[in-house]
Amino acid sequence: MLNFTIRRLLGAVPVLGFIALFVFALLHLAPGDPAGIIAGEEASPEDIARIYEALNLDRPLPEQFGLWLWGLVNGDFGVSIYTSLPVLELVRQRLEPTISLAITTIIFSVVVAIPLGAYAAWRAGSLGDRAVMIFSVLGFSVPTFVLGYLLIYFFAGRGTPFPVQGFVSIREGLAPFLRHIALPTFMLGTSYMVLIMRITRASVLEILNEDYIRTARAKGVPERKILTRHALRNAAVPIVTVVSLGFAFLVSGVVITESVFNIPGLGRLTVEAISKRDYPVIQGLILLVSATYVLINTATDITYAFFDPRIRY
């Protein structure tokens, strides 16, 4: 078991190395650089050249990559070109809104999706099942930003409990926190919820057709008990997989949600950093997000291996 865990974690190192090189190369191939933006509208070409040199952007790329990598190995993610603040400090400032949104979204989606999915499977073919399925296709097809604007248009602003934008920390009270985060959670959660709902329905449906369920039914075990004790429990593995693998999916959604609701989180930080070519910030952020993804993936694999010794990747 320990061996397997270590092997999986070591296997993640080349993956992260590939990501680091790929992202670095990609960004430095991009036209445009921070010097022109710092210099501002009225700057002359000489002004820009002077800043370019001062930022060490004129050094050869392999040297810049080496310096960055060396810093990483020593736990130093570098400093932002624009603010001279450490990348990790910027991440820390923006972490809370994003984590809050991710947690509320996961709770909301799971709490709504699993009962609905299980119900649809249990009453497969019924009107209720149809409604759930239609909702699930619809939820998949509406772009998150369109949903966001619909929510703002109909449910936010004056005369409603929901503000149009912004984020309030949970430390400033549960009520204001929930009022601010409710609509973003709904916007981000809808497509995530639909994903979980579909998998729940498919998995439960499959298990409900298994022989032992039929036997249980024949023995007169109440339907409610069959659903909760047998079907849902056995469908748990694929559902957990989707919930954890939905991480990558959440990240993309977070970028747009934070932009629509003006939430100062990591998603917005990344988009801003890309548009300003703040290389150390983008590189650090993408690497951190990817590492989290790889870790979650590895943890999921290890959990499987733990529960099912046959699995050895």
Partner: peptide
Amino acid sequence: DWATLTKRRA
């Protein structure tokens, strides 16, 4: 984007 333009115009 503006970042690219500041480079291109030079």
